[in-house]
Each structure stands twice: as structure tokens, then as C-alpha cells.
Design a protein around this nucleic acid. Structure first.
Ligand SMILES: Nc1ccn([C@H]2C[C@H](O)[C@@H](COP(=O)(O)OP(=O)(O)OP(=O)(O)O)O2)c(=O)n1
Ligand SMILES: Nc1ccn([C@H]2C[C@H](O)[C@@H](COP(=O)(O)OP(=O)(O)OP(=O)(O)O)O2)c(=O)n1
Ligand SMILES: Nc1ccn([C@H]2C[C@H](O)[C@@H](COP(=O)(O)OP(=O)(O)OP(=O)(O)O)O2)c(=O)n1
Ligand SMILES: Nc1ccn([C@H]2C[C@H](O)[C@@H](COP(=O)(O)OP(=O)(O)OP(=O)(O)O)O2)c(=O)n1
Ligand SMILES: [Mg+2]
Ligand SMILES: [Mg+2]
Ligand SMILES: [Mg+2]
Ligand SMILES: [Mg+2]
Ligand SMILES: [Mg+2]
Ligand SMILES: [Mg+2]
Ligand SMILES: [Mg+2]
Ligand SMILES: [Mg+2]
Lengths: 548, 548
DNA sequence: AGGACCC
DNA sequence: TAGGGTCCT
DNA sequence: AGGACCC
DNA sequence: TAGGGTCCT
């Protein structure tokens, strides 16, 4: 079943992975353009969580200690990024832009998205085209199953997408295009920032072998890496050459097979459309606070959380408290959580962010009750982190969620915003389109080709404006392009409650039949019965229960 | 917020609870009618899990030890009931019958179902009617919010339902009708077997006070009972008179409020439509088996399990092993479980119950690997129970599940099978209709008014046949009855992905708008883009990864 | 993965 | 205590 | 409720 | 190490 890892490698899909450049830093530069020509980092307590590319020239790394960063770059400017509110907001805008291309968009963290664009590039049978951007690997022998042209077409869509992110939101990004998620993500990281790269299935092994260690493979984390290290498997090559039975022996059949497949660049995991969040939470670490400070902190956290809830729009059903206690031998993360359901009536559906005074007291008392389950409040205690999050929400059925639903079901719907003239005949105008093919991997790549009038105020509600006389065509006018999808199943949707992924894999005629069945069926109201006149006598007596 | 427990008691719904009489025993009597005039129990290892009502006359209780049962009734016949296959099959048939009345049917165990029949009795504005069956409580002062007539109408539907269960499946049952699940279930148990009982909101407190102890309240189990006992709360009256703040103090706000509400008969929990099972499992206890017997047992369990899977029709994604080790101080149940995902390709979609030889070996090896995670197989061990279950399944989108889906969405659709003449003008013919009003609570109530020709062979595929000349009208000819529902929203369905319960609570016009929106929206295929010709140069070099 | 609940 | 299930933590 | 994974 | 998230056990 498993010869060298090549068996079972599905070439049928085309996936784009989009990763924003130094995301938090970009958002801060949009908020304060003065930062653009300076080296700065985003500070969260003791660490620089990310930095702009100018700062990276000094050797600043993500999640570096402030002290170390300052050693490398004494003039480093620090911008506080402990409140993720603005980043989350921008992140959602990014995903919304991507969802205009396909509804099958999966988020990963705040700055990454996978798009399954198979439907957008399928069955074109086109003449060969030149892809946009970088190509990883050898191109002398390419697979002829159809994946090659699809991936090349994918590079055009990726350019579209990145253009749109830039013109609509002012954000630069990287993209990777491949036949699976793993490869798309990894290949996209080979040319940063503000570039895009494709790779074809035959280069997968080479791509994977370029990774420094197995832990660089998405899905292989600390624990798995350590387990593999015990088997003397440290590099991707080690993993490729490992004995599958040995892997299965210690990792189980599931992880064993998966991990080895990954080392060959094989990854059949689907792009799973990300819906509304499963949880909304905030946390704040602190230097060992005691006793009554806890209530204050929690009150503040709750206020902030409620704003996020209001932006989300759903009423939460469950609250969870996270506590980290001071612990000298802090090897393991030692967080503890308690959760409980909350009354949905605590919230005013018209204004989720503001609780009545009494409801706020109630919620806070619920929270403190959770706290007393974690901490023996009779003794003294030292807390180093408090978190609050809501999980589970009342399902919304408003216009918005209905629209969301419709978007999900119409997976074949796509809007292409490619400016064909630009991408075909001449290099993209630096005024509206992030450069790609002319960019090298050196640090000069970081320029942002924004016109002055294109300053996007993050805090202003308006979208960027374009003058008609600009030499860049308006990207907001969506174009219906010329290539037609073959195999279009017009007006066929995945019936509700049906698994969309499964549905998409069904033969077209079966899809059609299922959809027609669904449409035709309508409730017959037969819910009728007649009066009855039969008498019956009331029951009596205490302890009337038939025992057993 | 909480004065005596009366606040927040929602009278708007009408709920029927159906509970089959001595369920396993009834099924065995259908399989072997010779048992009908004998006292017998259903044996599972050392216990009598249930018995027919003839046996109960001797004092046999559910879950009684065999030894004790034999003392009470030395001639007790024992029928082995360790394999639940036939009971599960019949249970599903019961639920299917009930789903003809409303799609909102919630299962509880194998022999109980709740039906929310609000839509079937709503807004009738009818003249008063006489309810069918018993009435619990005082009827001199009844609530005039509309709940009274709805509950009375509910008794007619309950009779319909019980008739249908008897004529279609040969099963007798009890029903309780009230404005919430708690009361419906409890009031139904006041007259057993083969009877039905209604109660009105004003009798709720009296009904609850008739329960011997708080543990008789559904939702209050061993742990909660013990916690309450520590607070000196043992009877329902104790609970009603308890201090809510004290309850909240030890149980938390959630459980505290709920438990006290329950003691007053307040229960706003919705009837949640039961879909396909979340898990399918079997287990077998044994007298401390060792070493290699385990593989044999597991092999047999797997064979049996696969038959259930085939009957379910979905391909499982996860397997779970349960192990109970021998433990002298067996105070707590000490089961341990391990689970893992399994390859969906192990199964032949055409024949789920039969694995290829190599796939069976693979699955068994997966199972044994799970076993070795629980048990240190190097030492000797003593296992007293092995269980295997599948959890998580590939979502089906076949004709069956589509039909299921359609049934769910057409919640207003109902088929009434009432023989109006029978219920209105004369006592039900004992030949087809389970007696109700003529039945007393004595042991004579257990008769089954089946004609000889009405023997239902559980193992025969045929439904019971009725001769045309029978004095009972064919129950399989569904009748459209005379009472029309007001407020019918014809052809309005709950849009997919929308919470049906929420949807049902929306104003009719909003429901209509949402449904119309959904229907009108159709995908616009705009998924088109053009070729691009832009050149780009292939990338190069090993260890090309932009670090960080 | 275990716990509490239900039949 | 059998031999099933559900949802929560 | 905690664990492993991702950013 | 911050301050978020996801799904599994
Ligand atoms: N362990 C981490 C990793 C990242 N982030 C945040 C900060 C980043 O800005 C953002 C995106 O993560 P990336 O790894 O994509 O990093 P950047 O986008 O900042 O930089 P790059 O240009 O390398 O993608 O998530 C974080 O909070 N904690
Ligand atoms: N702890 C329990 C309780 C019940 N059952 C099984 C045997 C019963 O036949 C069936 C239904 O449970 P009931 O409590 O409804 O009992 P019966 O239907 O047997 O009797 P009754 O007529 O009292 O409802 O479930 C079980 O296996 N374990
Ligand atoms: N065996 C059970 C099943 C349910 N409930 C009660 C308590 C739960 O709080 C409530 C919620 O049931 P849901 O099915 O709605 O589950 P969730 O609370 O998880 O909501 P969601 O469906 O949004 O996940 O039902 C219970 O007490 N015991
Ligand atoms: N953080 C994550 C999320 C998912 N997965 C992988 C492993 C899971 O086995 C697989 C399944 O994802 P699903 O969302 O399909 O979840 P389930 O396996 O629970 O299926 P179901 O949706 O039927 O519950 O995804 C992972 O490794 N890490
Ligand atoms: Mg990233
Ligand atoms: Mg990034
Ligand atoms: Mg990793
Ligand atoms: Mg029962
Ligand atoms: Mg019963
Ligand atoms: Mg109880
Ligand atoms: Mg368990
Ligand atoms: Mg946790």
C-alpha cells in the first residue's frame, strides 16, 4: 500500500495558500504610516512577537525576547500589540476578500488562508500558459494528468487575489500554489515577502528535503518531533527513509502513516471552510497578582470580550475561565480552566457589548465562582495569567448567516477580478499591483507600491478610493472573464445537511438528482385530526407512582 | 427572578412522552408468543434487566440479581437479552412511526421518545373537548392561556400514536402529555402499563411532590442526589423549600437553578430531534479473561459491530476500545478507553459488514494497538469487560438521508391516522386499539388486545396484515383529518444550516421571508478568468527557505 | 479520555 | 449490576 | 478539562 | 515566551 510514499498522492485539487507579510506590523503601518520607513517590532509583554522586514535585517526573529532584540537593534521601535482587536478585524476583512473567489476558504491563525480553487481551474483543457511568479523545482518533466496547467492557472488567480488584497486593504502578502495544502504553504514561504511561488507534484520531495527539520512540517509539533528524535529521526530525509512499521509502532497507525506521507509532500487533507468562530476569547498575563486584583482584571477582560462578542453578533452560551498559577518549575504550561453554561438572557440582543448593571454583576459572580473552583481562595495565591472566553453560541438565523449559508452552498460561484491586460501584456503597474515577477529575494522586495491617494485608514470606515483617471483600472468592478468552466452544474446546490465535500465528489448526475429531489419536495400539510369525545376520569391519591 | 419557581414557566408547548411497556420483554413475546402467558425476565449475565408484567406481580424489579429474582419467583423463565440487536431494530421502528406525526422526535434510551406536538395543536381555538385517558390532578381551575385545550388535544394525538404503535408493530405503550418534557414523562408513569395520562400546569407541583425522592427527577442522578443529601435535601419538598443561594453555592448557578426549577415541574428544555446516532457500540462483560482470549473476544465483538454498522449505513471514521480491568475495590466503574481514527478505505461501501481478510487483520491490529495502550501486555492482566464502538461517521448523502433531511425540514407535515369514529363515538375496538380509558391500574391492565391474525413476526419482513372485513379500519390508510391548523405557513421550511428550533420560534412572516430569500437565490456562475502570458523564471538552490 | 446523566 | 446511549468537561 | 497542534 | 485560535481525547 505504501511504496516510498508516492502511492495515494491526489493531484486533482489546486490549492492556494495566502500568508500576509509581517501581519501585525503591516496593520500598525496602516494605522501609523510614519512607521513605514522605520525598524520596529510588535511588543507583547517581554517579547517581540513580530517585526517589519526592516527590523528583520538586524536579525530580529519572531517571539524573540525584548532584551535580545534590543541588543541586535538598539534603536528598535516597539509598538504594543497585546490587544489583537485591530489585527482580528483586518484578518476577517482579508478572509472576506478571499471568499469572493471561492467559498472554500480555510483560515489558519490570523494571517493565513487556504483556498481550494479546483473548481476555478478545472477542465479548462487550455493551451499552456506561463505562470505568474516563482516556480520551485525542476520543470523539464512535468506531470501530464492535468495538474500542471491547473497549478499554472492557479498562479494567475493567486495574483488576482494578492492584487485585490492590496488594492482593497493595502496589504501585501505571499502565496503558494500546489496540489495540496502542505506544499502550497511550504512553497509559498520560499520567496518572501510580497511574492508568490508555485510547485508541481514532481518537485514535492525536493521541496520537503529543503526543510531544516521535521518540526518544520506543518502538523509535526514539539511532541511528535521529540518522539521522532527518540527514533533518531531528525531531518525530513531521516523521516523519508524511516521504517513505516517502526513509526506505526510508536506513533500508532494514524500518525505513523500521516507523518511519513507528509515527509514526501503527500497531504490529502481537504480545505475545510471556516465558519463562524468556535470560541472568542482574550487573555492577559501578569506578574503574579494576588487576591482582589483578580476581580478588577476579570472585569476589564469581560468588558473587552463583550466588544468582540458584539462584533461577532451571536449570543454566547458558555463561558470559560483560564488561570495560570505561579509555578517555579514552569516546564509545562500549567493552565487550568473551568467552564459553565450561562443564561442567554443576560444579553441584550440589540447591544451585546453592554450588560445591564445587574446582569454584569451576575456574570462576574459566575466568573468568580469558576475562579474559586480553580483557586483555594482561603489561602493566598499568585496568578500569572487570566483568560476569559466564550464557547458555544446561539445559532443565528438572520440575513447575514443566511447569506453566509448561501455563499457556502454555491461553491461554483466565483468572481474573477483579474485585469487581463495588465497581467497579460505588460508588467503590473506598480501603482496598484504588488510586484511579483520582478522581485528578487533580497530585502529590497519589501517595497509597497501604493500611490499617495491610496492610504488606507484602518480606523476610517471608507474603502480606498480610486480616481477614474488613474492608470489602474478599478479593481472593484468585477469582470466576467472569458474562460468558461466545463461541467457546470447550473443551479445545482449541495442539499442542506449534506456534507458539501462529499457532495462535490459525487457524479454530476447524482448531484443533480439529489438537488432536484430536494427542490421538488414540499411539505404536505396533513396535520389534522378531529375532536374526540371519549370521557376519562381524573386520577387521584398521593404517592400514586407505579413503583418500578 | 425566581419566586417560588413559578416564574419563567413556559406553557406554550405541548409535549408527548411515549414509553413502551416492559420493552425487551414485549419484543421477546413478539418473537415467541408462547411467552405471553408466562412470567419471564430478560437476563443479562447476573441480572434480570426487565421482566414482563406477569413476573412483576412477584415483585421482580428491573436490574435485580438473578438469584434474588429466583427467590421471589422460582419458576421465573429467563430469556437471554445480552444482544440488543432485535431491541434496537424495533426501537428504530418505533421512532419511525412517531416521526410520521412530527419530525421533532427525541429519543431517550431504546424505548422512550418525546414529541413536540405544539404545531399540531396550536391555535385551534376549538370548543372544549374531552381528553382521552387519565388526568392527573385537580381540574376545577385550569389555566386559560390556551395550554389546557392544547394538552387535551394532545391526548387525542397520543391515542393516535399508541394505536399506530400497536397496529403497526404490535407494541403497547404508555404516554404522558404536558407542557414540558419533565412533566410529560413523569405523568405518563402514573398509570402503567398500556395507558396514558395528561396533566395541566397547575398540577405540576402536586405531581412533583408525589415523587419519593429527588433522584426520581429526570436529570438528577446519583452524584447530584448525594450533593443535595449533604445539604439535607432528600425529598422534592425539601428541594422546593431550599434556599436557591445555598444550592447555587454548592452546585453552581447552572445546576442550582435548574434543579430547583425541576422540583416545581419547570423545564424549558426543548425537544431535540434525534438524528443518526453519534456512536454505535457493543460491549461484553466477562469473568476475568486473560491474555489471548482477548483477541478472540475482540474479533467476535467486531463481527457483531459490523452488522450494526451495515444496518446504520454510514462508514465510521473512529474506533474506540473500552476495557474494564479486574479491581477488588470496585467502588467506581473504572473503565478505560482509547480511541483512534481509522482509514475509511477499510470498508466496502457496498457491504459494510464484511471486511476483506486483510482489512479485517488491519482493523484488528489497530484495535490491539489500542488495547496495548490500556494494558501493559508484558505483565499478566485480568479483563472483566471489553467494548468496541464506532464514533464519527462519514456524512451520508444518499436517498435515505436526503429523505431524512426532508422529513426534518417539513416540520409542519403530519399524518394523522386517527380512526375518528373509533375515538369519538365508541370505546376503541380491542381488536386494533390498545385500551386506555377502560383500564384500571390493576394487573389486569396488561392484556394485549391482539386478534389471532395480528401476530407480528419480528423476524418476518412483512408488516401485519389486516383483512378487509375486519371490524377495524386499515390503519395503514392514512387519513386526512378534519381539524385544520391555523397559522399554517405552507411550503415554508427552515433554511438549511439554520437552527430549526430557533426558526420555529420566529414570527411567521420572518420565516417566510427567509425561506423565500433562500429559494430565490441561485448561484451566478461568474467563475471565469482569462489566460495570462506573463513570464517568470524558475527558482533555484538548495536550502532556499527564507528563515523565519 | 473520563464523568454525569438516561434507559 | 447489562448493554446500550447522550452531552459536558 | 486538558493536550497537541497552528499562527 | 503573547495572545490568540482549531480539533482530539
Ligand atoms: N507564535 C506566533 C506566531 C505569530 N504570531 C502573530 C504575529 C504575526 O504577525 C502573525 C502572523 O504570523 P506569521 O508567522 O505569518 O508572521 P508574520 O506575518 O508576522 O511574518 P511573515 O512575513 O514571516 O509571514 O501572527 C503570534 O502571535 N505568535
Ligand atoms: N437500567 C436499565 C433500564 C432499562 N433497560 C432496558 C430494559 C427495558 O426493557 C428497556 C426500557 O426501560 P424502561 O425503564 O422503560 O423499562 P421497561 O420498558 O422494561 O418497563 P416499563 O413498562 O416500566 O417501562 O431498557 C436497561 O437495559 N437498563
Ligand atoms: N445527556 C445530556 C444532554 C444534554 N443535557 C443538557 C445540558 C446541556 O447544557 C444542554 C445543551 O444541549 P445541546 O445539545 O444544545 O448542547 P450544547 O450546550 O453543547 O450546545 P451546542 O449545540 O451549541 O454545542 O442539554 C444534559 O443535561 N444531559
Ligand atoms: N487542529 C487540528 C485539526 C484537525 N486535524 C486533523 C486531524 C483530524 O483527524 C482531522 C479531522 O478533522 P474534522 O474537522 O473532520 O474532525 P472529525 O475527525 O472530528 O470529524 P467530524 O467532523 O465527523 O466530527 O483533521 C488536526 O490534526 N489538527
Ligand atoms: Mg503566517
Ligand atoms: Mg505572515
Ligand atoms: Mg511544525
Ligand atoms: Mg423507559
Ligand atoms: Mg418502558
Ligand atoms: Mg434521576
Ligand atoms: Mg468514555
Ligand atoms: Mg483548555
Amino acid at each position: 500500500m505504501d511504496f516510498g510514499g508516492k502511492i495515494g498522492d491526489d493531484h486533482s485539487r489546486t490549492i492556494i495558500h495566502v500568508d500576509l507579510d509581517c501581519f501585525y506590523a503591516q496593520v500598525e503601518m496602516l494605522k501609523n504610516p510614519d512607521l513605514k520607513d522605520k525598524s520596529f517590532g510588535i511588543q507583547q509583554k517581554n517579547i517581540v512577537v513580530t517585526s517589519n522586514y526592516k527590523a528583520r535585517d538586524y536579525g530580529i526573529k519572531k517571539c524573540m525576547l525584548i532584551t535580545e532584540a534590543k541588543k541586535l537593534c538598539p534603536n528598535l521601535i516597539l509598538v504594543n500589540g497585546e490587544d489583537l482587536h485591530d489585527y482580528k478585524q483586518m484578518s476577517q476583512k482579508v478572509t472576506s476578500v478571499l471568499q469572493k473567489f471561492t467559498s472554500n476558504v480555510e483560515r489558519l491563525g490570523l494571517d493565513e488562508n487556504y483556498l481550494d480553487i479546483t473548481n476555478l481551474v478545472r477542465d479548462k483543457n487550455n493551451e499552456d500558459i506561463n505562470p505568474i511568479g516563482h516556480i520551485f523545482g525542476d520543470t523539464s518533466e512535468l506531470c501530464d494528468c492535468g495538474c500542471t496547467i491547473r497549478i499554472k492557472l492557479g498562479s494567475i488567480i493567486a495574483q488576482d487575489i494578492r492584487n485585490e488584497l492590496f488594492t482593497e486593504l493595502g496589504l501585501t502578502s505571499c502565496a503558494g500554489i500546489a496540489h495540496n495544502k502542505l506544499l502550497a504553504k511550504i512553497v509559498g514561504s520560499t520567496n518572501k515577502p510580497n511574492q508568490q511561488t508555485i510547485t508541481f507534484p514532481d518537485s514535492a520531495v525536493e521541496l520537503m528535503l529543503g526543510l531544516p527539520s521535521v518540526s518544520n512540517i506543518t502538523g509535526i509539533g514539539q511532541v511528535l518531533s521529540q518522539q521522532l528524535a527518540k527514533l533518531n529521526i531528525k531531518t525530513v530525509e531521516d523521516l523519508q527513509n524511516s521504517d513505516l512499521n517502526v513509526l506505526i509502532g510508536t506513533l500508532g497507525i494514524e500518525k505513523g502513516k500521516m507523518v511519513r506521507d507528509l515527509s514526501f509532500g503527500i497531504d490529502n487533507s481537504p480545505v475545510k471552510p471556516t465558519g463562524k468562530p468556535q470560541s472568542i476569547g482574550i487573555e492577559d498575563s501578569c506578574k503574579t497578582i494576588t487576591e482582589k486584583e483578580v476581580l478588577e482584571k476579570l472585569t476589564t477582560l469581560l468588558q473587552r470580550l463583550l466588544i468582540l462578542v458584539e462584533e461577532d453578533g451571536r449570543i454566547p452560551k458558555t463561558i470559560k475561565l483560564t488561570v495560570r498559577k505561579y509555578d517555579k518549575n514552569t516546564k509545562f504550561s500549567n493552565r487550568e480552566t473551568r467552564q459553565c453554561n450561562i443564561s442567554t438572557t443576560l444579553f441584550d440582543p440589540k447591544k451585546l457589548s453592554i450588560l445591564s448593571e445587574s446582569n454584569e454583576k451576575k456574570l462576574l459572580s459566575v466568573i468568580m465562582r469558576l475562579f474559586s473552583k480553580v483557586v483555594d481562595t482561603r489561602k493566598s495565591y499568585h496568578i500569572t495569567l487570566l483568560g476569559l472566553s466564550f464557547t458555544k453560541f446561539i445559532e443565528q438565523i438572520n440575513k447575514n448567516s443566511l447569506a453566509m449559508f448561501l455563499a457556502k452552498k454555491s461553491d461554483l460561484e466565483v468572481q474573477s477580478i483579474t485585469n487581463l491586460k495588465n497581467t497579460q501584456d505588460k508588467p503590473p503597474s506598480p501603482k496598484c499591483i504588488p510586484s511579483t515577477s520582478t522581485v528578487n529575494s533580497d530585502s529590497e522586495a519589501e517595497h509597497e507600491p501604493l500611490s499617495k491617494k491610496h492610504k488606507l485608514g484602518l480606523l476610517s470606515k471608507k474603502r480606498p478610493q480610486f480616481s477614474d483617471s488613474d492608470d489602474c483600472e478599478s479593481p472593484s468592478k468585477l469582470r466576467v472573464a472569458e474562460l468558461k468552466l466545463s461541467g457546470d452544474s447550473q443551479n445545482i446546490c449541495c442539499p442542506p445537511n449534506a456534507d458539501e465535500q462529499v457532495f462535490q465528489e459525487l457524479p454530476k448526475d447524482v448531484q443533480k438528482e439529489l438537488w432536484e429531489d430536494y427542490k421538488q419536495s414540499r411539505d404536505q400539510e396533513r396535520n389534522l385530526y378531529s375532536q374526540a369525545t371519549k370521557k376519562s376520569k381524573p386520577n387521584s391519591i398521593l404517592n400514586y407512582f407505579v413503583k418500578q
